[in-house]
């Protein structure tokens, strides 16, 4: 872990908007859902840092650090979630970021528990409602830093 002294999770009150990094990992062109989620989160008062397609775990970690993000949201539709999602969680841990990872897209039911055990905060699928999307992101952040 590369700890930086003096940087702990922010104890934000409700005054400050949550900052969310949204991205797609690797070669997966399904960005429609991610765009929907971006608007949903914005309408819920969050600041969405939209990275879009073809990101790597490194580029996402770098963006999180620079943007001081509270949570990472990934959208996955290319059946790569069992490798990519745990890899993202691990990259976040290695960087000592302490931000939760929420994912959505196409994840078969039997894979959900595997991902949760790997440290993913929440998994949402097709048809997830606006309320569910917002609640999942808020809960992930609250769970990570109960101070909020």
């Amino acid at each position: 872990m590369s700890e930086t002294p003096g940087i702990s999770p922010l104890s934000a009150d409700d005054q400050e908007p949550l900052r969310v990094v949204l991205a797609k990992l690797g070669f997966d062109g399904h960005d429609r859902g991610l765009k929907v989620v971006a608007r949903t989160l914005r309408d819920a008062g969050m600041e969405v840092i939209y990275l879009g397609l073809r990101q790597t775990t490194d580029s996402i970690v770098a963006a999180c650090e620079q943007e001081d993000a509270d949570v990472i949201g990934l959208s996955m539709h290319n059946a790569g979630h069992l490798t990519l999602a745990p890899r993202m969680v691990q990259a976040v841990e290695e960087a000592g970021l302490g931000v939760p990872v929420v994912i959505g897209g196409i994840v078969p039911a039997e894979d959900v528990t595997v991902l949760i055990e790997a440290g993913v905060a929440a998994v949402l699928g097709p048809g997830a409602s606006t309320e569910e999307v917002v609640a999942a992101v808020r809960a992930a952040v609250a769970h990570q830093s109960p101070a909020r």
Partner: peptide
């Protein structure tokens, strides 16, 4: 809403 989509990156 106070939210924003920051899409410059």
């Amino acid at each position: 809403t106070g939210g924003a989509i920051l899409g410059d990156r």
